[in-house]
């Protein structure tokens, strides 16, 4: 359940930025979560609502954009989607690829009032 800590981070960062902007409240927060970042979107949403209480984010909506994991094969240089950390290259079955994306964990933007 480290989603709780992540949710607290989202609320902290969003609230800090909202205060800087002089916002009355935060309406939505958009985060990017890589599919291999080890974060469960459902758990993150659940924790987010709890963390928003009595902050400028109370009642706000969390928008989670999942980022697919991609890798480039070191042998044939083909790019492919990773379903897990240990997928072989679908073109040449090589076991070595450089991961290009999929572990993002980033607050991207928010809408404020």
């Amino acid at each position: 359940m480290h989603e709780l800590g992540i949710a607290q981070s989202i609320v902290e960062i969003a609230e800090k930025n909202a205060r800087q902007q002089g916002a009355k409240r935060v309406l939505t927060v958009t985060v990017e979560v890589g599919v291999l970042a080890g974060v469960l979107p459902e758990a993150l949403e659940f924790c987010f609502d709890a963390c928003c209480r009595e902050t400028l984010l109370e009642g706000s909506r969390l928008r989670i954009q999942q980022i697919p994991a991609r890798a480039r094969c070191r042998d044939c240089h083909q790019e492919y989607e990773l379903k897990s950390f240990f997928d072989n290259c679908p073109a040449c079955d090589s076991t070595v690829g450089d991961q290009l994306s999929g572990e993002e964990l980033r607050i991207k933007e928010m809408e404020i009032d």
Partner: peptide, 23 residues
């Protein structure tokens, strides 16, 4: 994967771009 289903804009958008594990 980034599509938004044309969600209505609810307020002023503020870009943040901060890593959640940055702290």
């Amino acid at each position: 994967p980034h599509h938004h289903h044309d969600e209505p804009q609810l307020g002023k958008t503020v870009r943040i771009e901060e890593d959640l594990l940055a702290k």
